[in-house]
C-alpha cells in the first residue's frame, strides 16, 4: 500500500458518498446517468468475485464490500426509490456500444484465459469507459449540479491517483500491470475536458456549465 493508492481509494469512496448524499438530500437523481451507475455496479460485481475466495486484507475486503453495497444502493435509489426523478430523456448513451466491445476485448487481451481473470479484465476495461454516459448526459443538458461536479472530480481523481500508484509500484516494487495501466490512462484522459471545466469554473464558485 502507498499514499497514492490510499488517497485514490479515499477519493473513490468520497465520490460514492457524494453521489449518495446528492441523491438522498435532494431526493432526486436529476443529472445523474443511470447507465453509468449500472456499469459501475457491473464493474464491481465482475471485479470483486474473489471477495469470498481470496482474502488479502481487512481493508481490501471492507472496501470491496462498501463499493459493491453502495453501487447497488445507488441503483436502488435511482431506479426504485426516486425513479420519478430519473432523467431518462437525457441519459440516452447506448451502453451496448461500450459493453460489447469491452467484453470482446477482454477475451482477446488478458493476462490469463481463465474465467476469473477474463472477468477481472472485463471490469478493468469497462471501468475505463463507464463514465461516458454521464459525461454525454452533461454535454446534452449543458450543465451539472455543483455536488454532481464534485462527485465527478473525486471519481476522476481516484484513477489519476492510481496512475501515480502504478508509477510508484513500478519503481519500488517492480510491479507492472499493462492492462490496468493502459485502461487507467484512458479512463483519466476521458475526464480531462471535465477537469478543465471544473477547475476553471467550480473552483471560482461558478456553476459547471458547458459552453453552448
Amino acid at each position: 500500500m502507498n499514499v497514492f493508492r490510499l488517497t485514490g481509494d479515499i477519493a473513490h469512496l468520497l465520490a460514492i458518498i457524494l453521489l449518495l448524499m446528492k441523491i438522498w438530500k435532494t431526493r432526486s437523481c436529476a443529472g445523474v446517468s443511470g447507465k453509468s451507475q449500472m456499469m459501475f455496479a457491473l464493474v464491481f460485481t465482475t471485479r470483486y468475485l474473489d471477495l469470498i475466495t481470496n482474502f488479502i486484507s481487512l481493508y481490501n475486503t471492507t472496501m470491496k464490500m462498501i463499493f459493491i453495497a453502495s453501487s447497488y444502493g445507488t441503483l436502488y435509489l435511482m431506479f426504485l426509490k426516486f425513479r420519478a426523478t430519473y432523467d431518462s430523456n437525457h441519459d440516452t448513451f447506448r451502453m451496448e456500444f461500450l459493453v460489447v466491445p469491452v467484453a470482446g476485448l477482454s477475451f482477446l487481451v488478458n493476462h490469463d484465459f481463465s474465467p476469473l481473470e477474463i472477468l477481472w479484465t472485463f471490469s478493468i476495461y469497462l471501468e475505463s469507459v463507464a463514465i461516458l454516459p454521464q459525461l454525454f448526459m452533461i454535454s446534452k443538458t449543458g450543465e451539472a449540479e455543483t455536488i454532481t461536479s464534485h462527485y465527478l472530480f473525486a471519481l476522476g481523481s481516484y484513477r489519476a491517483l492510481y496512475i501515480l500508484n502504478w508509477v510508484y509500484r513500478f519503481y519500488f516494487e517492480g510491479f507492472f500491470d499493462l492492462i490496468a495501466v493502459v485502461a487507467g490512462c484512458v479512463q483519466t484522459v476521458l475526464y480531462c475536458d471535465f477537469f478543465y471545466l471544473y477547475i476553471t469554473k467550480v473552483w471560482k464558485g461558478k456553476k459547471l456549465t458547458l459552453p453552448a
Binding site: 473513490h12 471485479r47 493476462h111 507492472f176
Partner: peptide, 10 residues
C-alpha cells in the same frame, strides 16, 4: 515485466 500479482488493488 508484466506480472499479474494477486489482485491486491481495488
Amino acid at each position: 515485466e508484466i506480472c499479474s500479482m494477486p489482485k491486491d488493488e481495488l
